[in-house]
């Protein structure tokens, strides 16, 4: 009887101590973590919408699994939309963010947020050379993948040897654009 009482007491004391310490520690770090996430979001919003030195204001329009839409303001005027989207890559999820002109005429810029593609092959979607070409692509229609230098603004050049990853990025963008156009139409109604 005495032994089992000791077991109960020891386990209870340690659980309470552990819970208390972690509770305090979480309070100490959670603000920092939230701030990190916020700055990271603001930084990428700024980067993909060409807003320098900083974004005046933005609001979240849609936020769901695998799709987030942000509206970027300058004063009261909408100057851009930014879309965070994710989808399946060659190995794991690819998460990316891109900015679009307010009239959806073209893409401003695109960044990869998360990817675990094969280094040296699919991971080239993070290289400047590949991302650079997304600037100015048409955002009012479906984009297509080509194996040569693009002729129109609706064509995106694939990475040699990484067709699967290139297709994944393209599909994510196409789906997100589609979704964004619908979301904005709904919001206007």
């Amino acid at each position: 009887m005495k032994e089992s009482l000791r077991i109960v007491i020891v386990l209870t004391v340690f659980s309470i101590l552990s819970g208390g310490i972690l509770g305090w520690f979480n309070k100490y770090t959670e603000k920092r973590v939230a701030l990190n996430n916020l700055t990271a979001l603001q930084e990428s919003l700024k980067a993909v919408t060409n807003m320098n030195p900083k974004i005046e204001a933005y609001e979240s329009v849609v936020k769901e699994k695998g799709f987030e839409l942000y509206k970027i303001f300058s004063g009261t005027e909408t100057v851009a939309y930014a879309i965070v989207a994710s989808g399946n890559g060659f190995q794991d999820k690819i998460k990316l963010i891109f900015g679009v002109k307010p009239d959806f005429s073209r893409i401003i810029d695109l960044r990869i947020l998360e990817q675990k593609e094969t280094p040296g092959m699919g991971a080239k979607i993070e290289t400047k050379k590949y991302l650079e070409q997304w600037k100015g692509k048409g955002a009012d229609s479906t984009l297509e993948l080509v194996k040569k230098k693009p002729n129109t603004k609706y064509q995106v050049e694939a990475i040699t040897g990484a067709t699967v990853s290139s297709t994944s990025v393209l599909n994510i963008v196409n789906r997100a654009l589609d979704r964004a156009r619908k979301a904005i139409k709904e919001a206007e109604k």
Partner: peptide
């Protein structure tokens, strides 16, 4: 610590430190 629950107790201790390390990295080395 009673012998019967030593592993459970150790795990609670270890898990506390691990969670602290994890939160600390997330906060200061994102």
């Amino acid at each position: 610590v009673p012998n019967q629950v030593r592993i459970a107790t150790f795990i609670v201790v270890i898990a506390t430190f691990v969670t602290m390390a994890d939160r600390y990295l997330a906060a200061f080395y994102p």
